[in-house]
Amino acid sequence: MAVGTILFILVLQTVLRFNILDPVLWALYFPSFLDGIVLTLRYLGIILPLSAVIGFTVGWARIAPFRTLSWPLSVFVDFFRGVPPIIVVIFAAVLGPSLLPARFRSQDIGIIIAALTLAMHSGAYQSEIFRAGFMSVPRGQLEAAQSLGMTRGAAMRYVVLPQALRLSIPPLANEFAVVVKDTSLLAIVGGFELFGSSFIFEQQILFSPGNQLSWIFVVWTAVALVYFVMTFAVTELLNAIDRRYHVKGLEAVTV
C-alpha cells in the first residue's frame, strides 16, 4: 500500500506539475503544518472520548422501556443526523458563547463549543451503533443469565454488555475515522487545526506574487496524506482491539 501511495503521488506530481519535496516551500509551510497536526490531535483528544461517552449513554438510554427517556433522545439523534454538521458548527461557535456568563466569552470558547457540538454530532451517530450492538445480543443470553439468579444489572454487566461492545467495534472504527475528518470543519470557525492552518497558508501563497502556484498542490497533497494516515491509524487501532477481544462465533447480524 505504501508503494501504491508513493506511485500515486509521483503520478499526481507529473500531471499537475508540482514537486512535493520542494524545500523552499517546506521551510515556509512546515510550522503551520506541524501546528495544525498537533491541534487536530488535541481536538481529537477531546472529541473522540466525549462522543463515545455520549453515544454509549444515549444508545443505552434509547433501549430503555421508558419512552419518557427514549423519545426526547430520539429527537436529539434525529436532529443531528438530519442536519449538516457544518451548519451546527458555525452557529454553535457564533451563538454558543452568548449562552455562557460574560467573562468566558471569546472566539476561542466559540471554537471549543463547536468542538463539543461535533462530539454531540458524532455521539448521535454512535448511539445508533451502540444501540444496534445491544439489540444484536440474543435475548436468550439475558434469560440464561437471569435463570442463574443474576439481577438484571449483573446480567447486563457480565453477559450482555461484553458482547454488545464487541459487536459495536467495527462500525465504531468507521465512525471514529469520520470524526478525524470532521475536525476539519472547525476551520470554518477559525480553528487552526490541520485544514484551517493549511487553508490560511494557501491563501497567503495565492496572494503573494513571488510564490509558485504549484505549491498549492504540494500543501494539499501533504494534508490529504496526513489525514489518510490518521484515519488509517484510527481504524487499525480499533481493528487491533477487535482482534484482541474477538471471540469466534460472535458476529453482528447484518440488517
Binding site: 475528518k181 476539519s184 470543519l185 498542490f217 490529504a224 489525514y227 484515519t231 488509517f232
Partner: peptide, 15 residues
C-alpha cells in the same frame, strides 16, 4: 474515504 471532503473540495478548487 480517507480524506476530508473539505480537503477534496479545496484541492479541486485550487486546480
Amino acid at each position: 474515504r480517507g480524506t476530508p471532503l473539505f480537503v477534496q473540495i479545496v484541492f479541486v478548487w485550487s486546480a
